[in-house]
Nucleic acid binder design. Sequence first.
DNA 1: CCCCCCCC
Length: 619
Amino acid sequence: MSLSDLTQGAIARMVESTDTSNGVQNPVCQILSIKKISSTSTANPNVGDRYRIILSDGVHFAQAMLASQKRQMAENGEIDRNSVVRVLQYSSNNVQNRRILILLDLEVIGGPTPERLGAPKALEDQARPAGAGAPVKQENGATAPATSYGGAGAGASAGSTKPAMGGRPGGSSMNAGLPIYPIEGLSPYQNKWTIKARVTSKSDIRHWSNQRGEGKLFSVKLLDESGEIKATGFNDAVDRFYGLLQENKVYLISKAKVSIAKKQFSNLSNEYEIMFENSTEIEECTDASDVPEVKYEFVPIDQLENVEPNQTCDVIGVLESYGEVSEIVSKASQRPVSKRELTLVDQSGRSVRLTMWGKSAENFPQNQGVDDKPVIAVKGVKVGDFGGRSLSMFGSSTMMVNPDIPESHGLRGWYDNDGATANFKPYSNVGMAGAGGAGAGGNLAERRSIAQVRDENLGMSEKPDYFNIRATIVYIKQDNLWYTACPSDSCNKKVNQENDGLWRCEKCDKSFEEPQYRYLLSTNVADMSGQMWLSGFNDDAEQIIGKTASELYQIREENESEYTAVLHRAANRMYMFNCRAKQDTFNDTTRVRYTISRAAPVDFAKAGHELAEAIKAYL
DNA sequence: CCCCCCCC
């Protein structure tokens, strides 16, 4: 299908006519957007206003409704965004001074069309003198179609008895003269528009600095009945609009720039995005009832295992607990990032971890007004497979605390009656069983025995598996216990001694008088079910051995038997090991390596109490 | 004009 297949110019003539009989016969048009209208308008059965369509002839587009008898074409996917259709029968109706096309019969032609044909503009004047055409009567009390897009032209239309903006709810003197457009109607070719849209998410302010300069920016997602679009503000626009724009509120926005969306950076299905500019006007709109609310599609926590990792989804649950803010260093950017772990529970009897990042993590819970065990709804969070399933906030994810929606009230009632005393099966407690010893914050069932680690084939898939074991050091391998490392901060690469006696680091491109010694621990550990070899790095090895690698190097230089004694003393101690299992191939042999990510001495008193509790639970 | 979405 190409632009030439469309009946160019048809839209204007269709709108001018009353129906097929005096209009265009069988025009071929493209559907730019199709949107189910879920705000239950009691309106007109004649109109059957269930699906709102933006219809294009390649030159112009205009607003249309799919007649209710053709609803199934939308429901079964026969027609969709970008479909090319032949309009067999239509009518053009005057609804509150706007012309709305009603598509009474149509057929799909050609195969799927992947893109918008041509560069259609909004029909400048879709209004007509009252009484012309075949006006659709509004029954008493009947609601007008949701948002009154002057869309294609509620501007000062010839013969219109109303002022141009008379129908604009919550409007003001600002933005005067610019018709309200559906978001789907925006394009770079037309800049006289106003959208009335709800902010569904707002990012943190982000600062950047690269070779091209530096600055700050933020972005919001905007929603109306027709679709969604991302809008970004840079520098001055951050100062002007960041505070004004708030999640879930509705705004009139005009005089911003529409440009081609960089699709790879957006998960919204819109070819375009908006940039706020110096001339941009934004005003909160108090009459927001006709702009759709954020829609959630909640996945119960126990169903998360059916969601593919890396997908996004919406989850609602009671905030059972949350941790302290901590800092990690991003592997990709090498920059420190704050994070905070929340634990959500729901009626499915399971709990899941939700990670918050950056400022929102630091400012939680104050920024969310969190009281005791609130209901938390999150939208667009990333599903991870850490420890089964986990959740992680994106910059584009949104969080609502105690939202006023049925699911929230249901959870509140359930939690206050039953949930508060229930036990929840976690997806994972990996990483929580650390300093506290045996399962601090975790439960004993989640810990594995060494036999289980083998029986469950952990580390045999492409991705690493993580597990915890409580085991006793049996033996520490005595040769190659350390390597000569680069002494630069956070380099740790192996350095070799050159002919000049200096130690050279290829990565840092520097030479040093002395290397830093760092452990490469290989230790055999055992529990009641068996034994296994674990690899460990410097920090955990220091803790286990009780000396730095440099100290131990000196000891061995001076007294070989003392060296052996130090290693003997390190054995027969019990630790909680957080480990990672991953395949690796060396000399054509593939085997699973088990690496310590954290080792913590067992707190026997605490572990004993936990065992007692576990036994009690069986009785 | 950013574009990373992180870690165990």
